[in-house]
Computed example of a mutant assay.
Amino acid sequence: MPFNLFDKDRGLATVASKHTIDSSCLAAHKTLEMQKSWVHSDKIPFMDINVFDRFMPGGVFEQGISYITFNCMALHTCSRGSVHVGSADPVASPVIDLQVLDNDVDMGILVEAVKLMRKLAQTDPLKSLIDGENFPGPAVQTDEQIKAFVRQAVGMTYHPIATVGMLPKEDGGCGQQPEGLRN
């Protein structure tokens, strides 16, 4: 879902347009600049909402009750994590810092997602099928309460395809863009 569909007052787009990162990686800066332009497009999705006919991701739930789960994925996140060698030991695990939710843009997208998923659940015909909300629950209403829920509930999803930025070499990537993709 593009920004303009969930950020009606454009407040979050303004925050995204001013976002900066602390990185010496040229590819990270180029990617962020592309993302900043995308927040003004009605064609680039930043949020993906999925609905499942069961309790997800699992855990404690009451037997004999039907559940519906709304799940949101923030796309094109502004978070920039890192992976570093943490030891001279060649079999030691790397030090990974995902820096998830370290900025107002990503958190803002997920807060708006919770609000939108609630709105969807209160719209017919779904409304007639839903008896109540389990998570985050009806007591969670303010943006600060929703942020606390998001921090507790956030997970990661990924579709691994590559480990190198797909940008031209001069922009910090691994190769040349095909002719049709150049600006």
Rank of each mutant, 00 (worst) to 15 (best):
M1W: 09
P2V: 07
F3P: 01
F3K: 09
N4H: 13
L5G: 09
F6P: 02
D7Q: 08
R10W: 05
G11P: 04
L12P: 03
L12H: 05
A13V: 04
T14K: 15
T14M: 07
V15E: 02
V15I: 12
K18E: 09
D22L: 07
D22C: 02
S24F: 07
S24H: 14
A28K: 15
E33C: 04
Q35Y: 12
Q35R: 15
S37M: 14
S37N: 15
W38E: 14
W38C: 04
V39A: 01
S41A: 12
P45K: 12
P45R: 12
P45A: 10
F46W: 09
M47H: 08
M47A: 03
D48H: 11
I49R: 07
N50I: 06
N50A: 09
D53R: 12
M56Q: 12
M56F: 09
G58S: 07
G58Y: 04
G59V: 03
G59D: 04
V60R: 13
E62L: 05
Q63H: 06
G64W: 03
I65K: 15
I65Y: 05
Y67T: 05
Y67P: 00
Y67C: 01
I68W: 06
F70Q: 09
M73H: 08
H76T: 04
T77R: 10
C78V: 07
S79R: 06
R80L: 05
S82Y: 07
V83G: 02
H84T: 09
H84A: 10
V85D: 04
G86F: 00
S87E: 01
A88N: 06
P90D: 02
V91H: 13
A92C: 02
P94D: 06
V95K: 12
D97N: 15
D97V: 08
Q99E: 08
V100Q: 08
L101Q: 01
D102H: 04
N103H: 02
N103L: 00
D104I: 00
V105R: 03
M107S: 00
M107C: 01
M107I: 00
I109T: 04
E112A: 10
A113S: 07
A113W: 02
V114D: 01
V114Q: 02
V114R: 04
K115F: 01
R118D: 03
K119Y: 11
T123F: 07
S128Q: 15
L129V: 06
D131I: 11
E133F: 05
E133G: 08
N134M: 10
N134F: 04
F135V: 09
F135H: 14
P136A: 10
P136C: 08
G137I: 10
G137L: 11
P138K: 14
A139F: 14
V140H: 13
V140K: 13
Q141T: 15
T142D: 13
E144H: 11
I146F: 08
A148R: 15
F149I: 07
V150L: 03
Q152L: 05
V154C: 02
T157K: 10
T157P: 00
Y158S: 14
H159Q: 13
A162V: 11
A162T: 14
M166W: 13
L167I: 07
P168H: 10
G172V: 10
G173W: 11
Q176A: 12
Q176G: 08
P178E: 14
E179V: 13
G180P: 12
L181H: 15
N183S: 13
